[in-house]
């Protein structure tokens, strides 16, 4: 369970952005979390209130956009859901693939005044 540390890291990055851009108030933080990333959205949501308590972000909302793990088959170029198909191409059964999304773990945007 390292989500609390991750949330602190998020707040640090947002805080830098707020200072650099002289923003007044952050209404919402939007995170992009890939299915294969190390962070579990539910845990991130659960520890967010603890991380922002007594900070200027206490009333800031958190939104998490989950990014599915999508692969392209190296043999038949079919695009498929990696987790759903357990890493095996559903059309040709090859296990050779290139990952095109799913490792994302970033701050997408913030809504602020």
């Amino acid at each position: 369970m390292h989500e609390l540390g991750i949330v602190y890291e998020v707040i640090k990055i947002v805080d830098q952005f707020v200072v650099e851009n002289q923003l007044l108030k952050v209404e919402k933080i939007v995170l992009e979390i890939g299915e294969l990333s190390q962070a579990i959205p539910r845990f991130i949501e659960e520890c967010f209130p603890a991380a922002v308590a007594d900070t200027p972000y206490e009333t800031t909302a958190l939104e998490i956009v989950s990014v599915p793990a999508v692969a392209v088959c190296k043999s038949c170029h079919n695009e498929y859901g990696l987790i759903e198909h357990r890493k095996i191409c559903p059309s040709c059964l090859s296990e050779d693939f290139t990952l095109i999304s799913g490792r994302e773990f970033s701050i997408k945007e913030i809504a602020a005044y």
Binding site: V10, I13, F17, N21, L31, A39, F105, S106, I107, E109
Partner: peptide, 8 residues
């Protein structure tokens, strides 16, 4: 809306 696109 400010796009940040910064990896955590």
């Amino acid at each position: 809306i400010f796009s940040i696109k910064k990896g955590i």
